[in-house]
Design a binder for these strands. Sequence first.
DNA 1: TATATTACTGACTTGACAGTTATTAAACGC
DNA 2: GCGTTTAATAACTGTCAAGTCAGTAATATA
Lengths: 226, 226
Amino acid sequence: MDNLSTELDYNTDENAPRWQRRPDDRPTEILDAALLLFSEQGFARTKLEEVAKKAGVSKGTVYLYFESKDALFQAIVRTYVIEALLQLREIVRQHTGTSEALLRHVMELLWTSMRNEGKARLSRLVHSELANFPELARFYFTEVVIPSREMVSEILTRGIQNGEFAPVNPDLVGRTICVTLLQWASNQRYLKQFDSVHFSDDEVFAGVSELLMRGLKTGAVRAQQD
Amino acid sequence: MDNLSTELDYNTDENAPRWQRRPDDRPTEILDAALLLFSEQGFARTKLEEVAKKAGVSKGTVYLYFESKDALFQAIVRTYVIEALLQLREIVRQHTGTSEALLRHVMELLWTSMRNEGKARLSRLVHSELANFPELARFYFTEVVIPSREMVSEILTRGIQNGEFAPVNPDLVGRTICVTLLQWASNQRYLKQFDSVHFSDDEVFAGVSELLMRGLKTGAVRAQQD
DNA sequence: TATATTACTGACTTGACAGTTATTAAACGC
DNA sequence: GCGTTTAATAACTGTCAAGTCAGTAATATA
């Protein structure tokens, strides 16, 4: 723009194509833009025209690749969440070692993956909009929640069988671990702004994992019932 | 309606007033209706006309008592959440006994209060819409989250000082306890429908509180660091 | 270079819904 | 009962955004 020295170039932009045809890249670009805006402003408050603008296309183009605004949201979840879960499963499958080490490793993975901006955004978006998409909620539950849960339950079951862990209910404790980590990760990122007493990510993970591990491991004093 | 025996009455409804003036009751009735619908359908998808209908008034009447749709939502939070919190604080203030018993008691209260349909709805609504109302989020955080947190932290601090609890970070563990219970309570109510393995409320509370208590109490074996 | 194909545009239509207002009638005081 | 006040209505308006489509321009093909 500033460079007007070569006079032959000064109207290059007029000759340049006003837009390009890149049908292979458009869907991804639109999904990225939508994830960003939905997670910043919420689904209902985001206009498709904004999404289009951010993706560098016109609104009509969005409708070439996605049937509706709802369909676009569902595509986001399908694309990104499933992918994230597959990565996690793969890592678990390759692990060898004690149950405690494996559990710690999975917890760390869950925790660090949430420090990725995109994944944190996605998790928050999904959980806050789930109530508004019953159909999507079912999909999310069967495809994401249950598999994650089974993965953790399996680790716990093995640990209980070989005596590393106390005989807790593996399903129940597994869910507790996941819920606690995810919720904390979300808080760390989004409630920070209001928070007078703020902990570093490392502090939180150390504290929470210690609390849970102490509760889980054999040899702990039984809590007295009153 | 069925009782047509007294012929003098058969057109009573024509003589009856078409509506009544009940300015004292309207706000509450509108808030109740709004809470119900917002929590079922989400804020954006609920029309004020539906709220009005459910509350037995016309849309115009809603605007007599609330400035806007947003203001109505804020009023819900202010009214119900603050009230719930005050109840809890009062109960805690009156308690005498060991820190463990007190903590257990508070956890039970938190848990059972969430079995109340209205409170569970409210909690879910607030957490899913919070992202869309930054101003409300700030209010909610300072008026609700921080006070709750301080309440639990105080109990923990006392327990640590008198040796009942291990020297954990009371703020951090306090938050963890709240987050875990609230999230579980929400799951119990709303994810039940998709869930193949479902636990009773009592099972969940017993399991979760045992896990947390075992992690918290003194005498537990330290988790080995790897 | 000419023709066909199709990715892409953006102005337009449409419906929905938040918020307003002119009007009506319930209730209160005298 | 009668006049005044005001709670409540319901028809209305204006706006905003989802979704459409006729047209346009980039590219592929011959």
